[in-house]
Simulated assay, not measured.
Amino acid sequence: MGTHEGPGGHRVKLTHLHGERVDVAHGGVRLLSYVYAPEAAFEAPKPYLHPLATLSGGVVTDYRPNDHRWHKGIQLTASHLSGQNLWGGNSYVHGEGYLELPERVGSMTHEGFDEVRAQDGLAVLAERLTWRAHDGSAWADERRRVETAVPRRDPGAWHLTLSTSVTNLREEPLRFGSPTTEGRELAGYTGLFWRGPRAFRGGRILTADAEGPEVMGTQSQWLALSGEFDGVDGHATVVFAHAPENDHTGERGTHPAHWFVRNEPFAAVAPSWAFYDELVLAPGDTLIRRYRVVVADGRWERGDIATYLAEQPW
């Protein structure tokens, strides 16, 4: 086990339980655990962030809920990848629904960390991973970076920035899809995925210019979901934002991202890589994405969100 702390009163504390997880804490509160020890094969083993908590300690993620055991906090996923399932659980097949097809379920294996450190109000993880098909063959190489930042000015929130670069190792294209690209309406989940706690069912969904479940499948620079805790008093808001270079509008002629979001029968958000159309990654090419996740105490309004995002440089 290793522990790193930044200097002074604005510090974050990072604790590495080697072979298992990395915890990041601030002010005596564990803000997150990054778990990289592999779990059940049918759940498509891969690293995940859980628990994720507000500065006051309210947990805003769920882990292995009884409806989807492979939902674990925040994960990077690939529900349909050239016929393989790096999402976990049953696989959607057009005309047949969800089927138990373990021969399709792959994994994202942790290969090592290049950086694990905490300095002042920032904690950094830089990780190498291999995306593997069910037979263990290496399909993609990933470089991932997770940064946890607590602002000096206390807005009642902190954020993490997740960056990923996925390089196709195969001699043929990697085809990223979703249940929607396979024929299921409004089920375009793939890529970064958050599963909210059970208490956040029915939570408020907000974007810069719309509100409610009807934002499913639309585009926006950011999306937020607010819910009220069980067990402790208060609300929390979780905001998901695209980095400026992401193709969230498609204006750069690249593959546009659309939001997958639900507040019933559970709370979930994904800035989908392949909502309506497949994303095709040629051999040797690299897919690069960067996201920010803001975890805030309270029920934030549009102005609160816009102010926080504007004050935190990328």
Score class of each variant (00 low, 15 high):
Glu214His: 12
Gly27Ile: 09
Gln221Gly: 01
Thr161His: 08
Phe200Met: 12
Arg144Trp: 03
Glu171Asn: 14
Ala268Asn: 00
Gly57Trp: 04
Met1Phe: 06
Gly217Gln: 04
Pro51Ser: 10
Tyr291His: 15
Thr130Phe: 13
Ser163Trp: 11
Tyr92Arg: 00
Leu125Pro: 07
Val166Asn: 01
Ala210Lys: 14
Gly83Phe: 09
Val269Asp: 05
Arg252Ala: 10
Pro102Arg: 04
Asn85Lys: 03
Thr249Asn: 11
Gln312Phe: 09
Pro47Lys: 01
Gly231Ser: 00
Leu101Met: 12
Ser165Lys: 13
Gly73Asn: 01
Gln221Asp: 05
Arg252Ser: 10
Asp209Lys: 11
Trp273Phe: 05
His50Cys: 05
Val295Asp: 03
Tyr92Pro: 00
Ser272Glu: 01
Leu129Ile: 01
Val232Met: 13
Ala296Pro: 08
Glu115Asp: 12
Gly284His: 05
Val232Arg: 15
Gly188His: 02
Ser79Met: 11
Gly97Gln: 06
His71Met: 15
Pro179Gly: 12
Phe193Pro: 01
Pro265Val: 08
Leu206Ala: 09
Gly121Met: 01
Thr15Arg: 13
Leu162Glu: 13
Pro256Ser: 07
Leu162Ser: 09
Val60Thr: 11
Ala157Gln: 06
Leu14Cys: 09
Thr190Phe: 03
Ser56Thr: 12
Thr61Gly: 04
Gly83Val: 08
Leu160Thr: 10
Gly191Tyr: 00
Gly191Val: 00
Thr181Ala: 11
Gly9Ile: 09
Leu281Tyr: 05
Asn246Pro: 04
Ala267Val: 02
Gly234Asn: 02
Val116Lys: 02
Trp273Gly: 00
His258Gln: 12
His71Asn: 14
Leu52Ser: 05
His159Ile: 00
Asn90Phe: 10
Pro244Cys: 00
Arg117Leu: 12
Asp233Ile: 02
Gly203Pro: 05
His10Ala: 14
Glu103Pro: 05
Ser165Val: 00
His159Tyr: 14
Gly57Met: 02
Leu99Glu: 09
Arg117Asp: 13
Ala199Pro: 01
Thr77Lys: 03
Gly106Ile: 03
Leu186Trp: 13
Ile305Gly: 03
Gln219Arg: 14
Ala282Glu: 15
Thr254Phe: 05
Pro7Ile: 04
Glu171Tyr: 08
Glu182Leu: 10
Glu245Phe: 13
His255Arg: 14
Ala236Phe: 08
Arg128His: 12
Glu96Tyr: 09
Gly97Phe: 08
Glu43Cys: 07
His80Asn: 12
Gln75Asn: 06
Ser33Met: 08
Gly2Arg: 15
Arg252Pro: 00
Glu278Leu: 05
Phe42Pro: 04
Pro313Thr: 15
Asp67Trp: 15
His71Arg: 13
Gly284Ala: 05
Gly203Cys: 11
Gly188Val: 01
Ala25Gly: 14
Gly97Asn: 04
Val60Lys: 12
Glu111Thr: 07
Gly27His: 05
Trp87Asn: 02
Leu52Gln: 06
Phe240His: 15
His18Met: 11
Phe113Asp: 11
Glu172Ile: 03
Glu228Gln: 15
Asp304Asn: 12
Arg184Ser: 09
Gln75Ala: 11
Gly203Asn: 10
Trp314Met: 08
Thr190Gln: 02
Trp131Ser: 03
